[in-house]
Design a protein around this nucleic acid. Structure first.
Lengths: 253, 253
DNA sequence: CGTCTCTTTGAATGGTATCAAACCCGGTGG
DNA sequence: CCACCGGGTTTGATACCATTCAAAGAGACG
């Protein structure tokens, strides 16, 4: 069945990648028009994914690859001991489900942090396209390598930096990603709670809270619950870039 | 030029993947015989890579993909501030150079920790094969996904566990990898120095040293410089598996 | 308006970094 | 053969940052 061409269109509800406002962020821009057309035919555009709904669980066999169109998503893994390890946050344009690429089963889980819309590509359709297009394979390799680089960055942040630096980097990273999506980089709302931030950064809730308060006290940011305003971007960057040598050494160099 | 068919062969110096003692560990087992034959034609078998020689540097454009045949290699990245971040250690059978897959440039550096032998596949040959074999693409995706999983594991280890658990996990991981290669899992030599271990685990040299001493005092292992013997594997596993709740909580669950 | 959850703040504990010095070992030269 | 290095490693004392335990405060929602 072709994407429904009747019924009411909601705001921002496109039916073709070519019209999509996210096109410049989406991997669809990297494949050739023929393949994109074919993609269009198999994409399921889904909306109304509500807060705390799971896109997939770890261990589950992959049903689709998805691109986030609006909202935000938390990726996490569950350790043998049953506790959560937050591995990242997805924003519009990000691809969700690459973790199932090797085994066909998702390595981790993904859950909506707020109301979300998605473009879903069924795996069998996608695998068929992969088998025929080396170009698409390359794009996927690139995406995986990027996730890898991200994981490595996180490794550095979580394992080796003090709390203040971790939080500064988190805020700046988020700010930069929002900016690339055409949103205000200095005034935004955190869709995840303190627990998720703490877990992601390898800290406790209390430390995250204290650090945010301290940054506010120092006039670097303004925080009010989930709302954040970056007041002194330069100062924040300096904290993040470790320009001062106020961090643990941990056998570097 | 074909791989030299005259000259003296050194011990363990094969000229075909089919004869290679590492075959069961190598990704070459996962491709079909035709492709493997073709691989054989382009592989450069290199030896005499001596300690502290670099295979590649971060930022360098990739010249070849390599499989380690003997020895061991340290992978690391250099941060903007110039200090080192050890991301892993390669053992025989491991593929080196996947980090250049997306951009064509190596994300990190790789340096020999001792005398090494390698199988090198020139990138242009390899890319040609990639363009023609979806199967090979899949194998590469799987390898990348495995590196990814490894990076995630490390993230958990480095960011969230206490020193004792980190060291225990490090020793067990190494032990398991050696065992899979047919070596003694309980008696081995660390090819990396304390600095590298500390950096890899996100600790200081002193803490690593102290922790090893403590494990010895508790009768779990025996250490003498770079030589390690696992005395009580069960105890070590219990430390690593967090069976006791003696670790920071850090917003889990 | 009351309840529940999330968040913030406070005080005390503890693990790891830091600073400093001793130790061990292989290599070198007297 | 031994004294003397120099690097890597071990050990000790102290300081500090983040966790932990505890409780108050703020928001969301019925």
């Amino acid at each position: 069945m072709p994407p429904n061409s009747e019924g009411t269109d909601l705001a921002g509800q496109e039916h073709s990648c070519n019209d999509c406002v996210l096109f410049s962020l989406c991997f669809a821009q990297d494949i050739n028009p023929d393949e994109r057309e074919r993609l269009n035919g198999v994409i399921r555009r889904r909306q109304g994914v509500h807060r705390s709904a799971h896109l997939h669980h770890g261990g589950q066999s992959a049903r689709q690859l998805a691109v986030l169109r609006s909202g935000s998503i938390k990726a996490y893994q569950v350790s043998r001991e049953g506790d959560e390890l937050v591995t990242g946050f997805y924003l519009p344009g990000d691809v969700i489900g690459l973790d199932a690429f090797s085994t066909g089963e998702h390595a981790g889980s993904a859950v909506a942090l707020e109301e979300c819309r998605l473009c879903e590509i069924p795996v069998n359709d996608f695998n068929k396209m992969l088998g025929e297009s080396p170009r698409l394979n390359q794009v996927m390799l690139r995406l995986l390598a990027e996730e890898m680089a991200e994981a490595r960055r996180l490794l550095l942040v979580v394992g080796r930096l003090d709390a203040r630096t971790r939080v500064a980097l988190f805020l700046l990273s988020l700010s930069r990603r929002l900016e690339r999506r055409g949103l205000d980089p200095d005034l935004f709302r955190l869709s995840m709670d303190r627990r998720d931030i703490a877990n992601y950064l390898g800290l406790t809730i209390e430390t995250v809270s204290r650090t945010l308060s301290a940054l506010q006290r120092d006039g670097v940011i303004h925080v009010r619950g989930k709302n954040v305003r970056i007041v002194d971007r330069r100062a924040l960057s300096e904290l993040a870039h470790l320009d001062e040598s106020s961090r643990p050494q941990r056998a570097a160099g």
